[in-house]
Design a protein around this nucleic acid. Structure first.
Length: 558
RNA sequence: GCGCCUGUAGCUCAGUUGGAUAGAGCAACAGCCUUCUAAGCUGUGGGCCGCACGUUCGAUUCGUGCCAGGCGCGCCA
């Protein structure tokens, strides 16, 4: 509703001011929400922009624009919605909406219920969000946890605003890392069988390798080293990948993240597909030979230098299967693909976007989001990590220490590409300093108020024709509710969930303020009480919708 | 050396794509419960928006050059 209104005002301005610009082009009309609410609900700078063209002082232009817009509002039947228009200092034209119009926002919210904020903005377009995609060589780390939280919430939001968003995990089940994994398990198994082994530094050092070795030996009832050595290494590799993928799937499930598609590299980028894509790119002139290797001319699409795709020994670099994989995505009909990657992949973006363009897609068909690392803090000290010795903090540890709600929320409290300090102590606190609890508490409060209302028999489901809501805190709260749909679109434009996280904190604050200043259930004023209950209910709808999109629970009692 | 990112209150960070007196949380200080959850609310103090030019009605935002920090630059994955 507010979003519509914003557009309507823009249209009215464009129409009413047409006559001031005969012959010349009118500057583009911006209608924005001022940061200071004293400046109204909407504001336009059109007079400032036009002052040069019309060669008149800005305030003067603004006044005459104001009169024209007022007449235009009348024609559009918006004069009841817009209470007044005022002209301010440098030359802003500010729009104030009436209480009645504000209450209509609440009516709309109550009607839409769980669907409030849902839209068909995405027009059912198929989009793909690939995230986590960790090599199955160990349990997921904190870095993956942040990707999981962000990726899942992004997909939820995109689906809510009308996209058909698919969550996808690229399963890297081949290559060097997997070979090393197989070798690591093999060596640990030999060790268990009494054969003392040198354990190379580049092998996986974690305790979980022993667990895997034990499970493997027990499962196959292997008694001695000779029996183990007789096996094809591929058998152990396959076992290890399956074992760890089960672990990873379980971790993600416990974190509340469910993927729609698991794409194994071994299937998508098998030799045949690689050859096909390679030949295809070659025939299009993207591949040339130099120093005995085959190079992809990614510089044609803005990369720093061309990249090797096939080494002089005849094997492919890891880049090649990735190209095949992305071609596969587009073959499956996605119009846009998102990739969430760790900061160490940041040099990888130009080459990936180059590849996508070489495959015939527009440049913006791929959007790579770099998810920055989170540093865990305990008692003000950063928690040390060392992947070298397999001693990194795992996703499961964080999840178990602070809970799923708090960890998911905390991982989203900063812009994805901004570094994040994660305060474990704060995340565990059940006090207002902890933003998750602050929001969830607001939600729980709505329940206890409604419960109380039910008990007194006062509550009935009023949802239209509001007449008694007029206090500033009530109006502010409803306006806040009205901004929800726009926030979701902002998440799309920014490809970030942060706007929603931030919004929910503001919404909760507006609710708490309202609660503190005004009594909802008041036997002396039954009509007002019923309307305030409706406002409480509307607040709950939006807080719940928002939390649900973020994958955070909505407790009824705390 | 080349490329990317960051620099805003004591700390952690926003700033709606160029707008109005630059905001929030934490920390500090001072208040508010016989009434729906005080797990809440209110107020105060705190700023050369890294520095310098430029673009214009107007710059934290855009451009250029410096300064400081982080990261990336293999026929590794």
């Amino acid at each position: 509703m507010l979003l519509n209104l914003q557009n309507q005002i823009r249209t009215v301005i464009e129409k009413s001011l047409m006559r001031f610009f005969d012959g010349t082009a009118m500057p583009s009309v911006d209608v924005e929400v001022p940061s200071d609410k004293a400046h109204g609900e909407f504001s336009s700078n059109i007079a400032l922009k036009a002052t040069k063209l019309l060669k008149r002082p800005p305030m003067d232009v603004a006044s005459s624009f104001r009169d024209a817009i007022l007449a235009g509002l009348d024609e559009q039947g918006l004069s009841g919605t817009i209470e007044k228009i005022e002209v301010f200092k440098p030359g802003f034209i500010n729009f104030y909406i009436s209480n009645k119009a504000v209450c209509e926002i609440l009516e709309e919210t109550l009607r839409a219920k769980d669907d409030y904020g849902r839209s068909d903005f995405g027009q059912k377009k198929k989009i793909n969000i690939e995230f986590v995609s960790a090599n199955p060589t160990g349990p997921l780390s904190v870095a993956h946890a942040r990707q999981a939280a962000v990726g899942d919430a992004l997909a939820n939001i995109f689906n809510f605003i009308g996209f058909n968003a698919i969550k996808e995990y690229y399963l890297n089940d081949e290559g060097n890392q997997i070979n090393i994994l197989g070798k690591s398990v093999n060596l640990r198994a030999l060790e268990r069988l009494g054969e003392k082994q040198d354990f190379p530094e580049d092998c996986y050092q974690g305790q979980y390798i022993y667990d895997m070795a034990d499970t493997f030996l027990a499962g196959r009832k292997i008694k001695d080293a000779a029996e183990l050595n007789a096996l094809n290494p591929a058998v152990i590799r396959q076992f290890a990948v399956n074992y760890l993928m089960d672990v990873i799937k379980e971790e993600l499930k416990d974190f509340g993240v469910n993927f729609d598609v698991w794409s194994p590299q071994s299937v998508i980028a098998d030799e045949e597909n690689i050859k096909k894509t390679f030949d295809d790119l070659k025939s299009k002139g993207h591949i040339y030979e130099k120093d005995g290797a085959m190079w992809f001319n990614t510089t044609q699409y803005g990369d720093d230098k061309d990249r090797v795709v096939k080494k002089s020994d005849g094997t492919y670099t890891y880049f090649m299967p990735d190209i095949v994989y992305h071609q596969d995505k587009f073959k499956r009909g996605f119009t846009k693909v998102f990739n969430l990657l760790g900061p160490d992949h940041h040099g990888y973006i130009p080459r990936l976007t180059a590849a996508v363009q070489a495959l015939g897609q527009p440049k913006d068909a791929i959007r790579v989001l770099i998810v920055q690392l989170a540093t865990l803090f305990r008692d003000g000290q950063p928690v040390k990590m060392s992947t070298r010795f397999g001693q990194y903090v795992t996703m499961r540890e964080v999840m178990e220490e602070v809970g799923v709600d708090a960890s998911r929320f905390f991982f989203m409290m900063r812009l994805v590409d901004a570094h994040l300090d994660f305060d474990l102590e704060l995340a565990k606190k059940e006090t207002p300093e902890n933003p998750v609890y602050y929001i969830q508490y607001a939600h729980a409060r709505t329940y206890s108020i409604e419960e109380k209302a039910n008990a007194t028999g006062l509550y009935h489901a009023k949802s239209s024709n509001f007449k008694f809501l007029s206090e500033p805190e009530e109006m502010e709260l409803i306006k806040k509710i009205g901004h929800f749909p726009k926030i979701l679109l902002m998440c799309w434009n920014q490809a970030d969930v942060f706007a929603l996280v931030n919004y929910l904190q503001e919404l909760a604050a507006a609710f708490h303020r309202f609660y503190d200043r005004h009594r909802v259930i008041d036997a002396e004023k039954p009509e007002l009480s019923v309307e305030r209950l409706a406002l409480v209910h509307g607040s709950r709808i939006v807080i719940a919708n928002g939390l649900r999109l973020l994958g955070v629970s909505t407790p009824q009692k705390m």
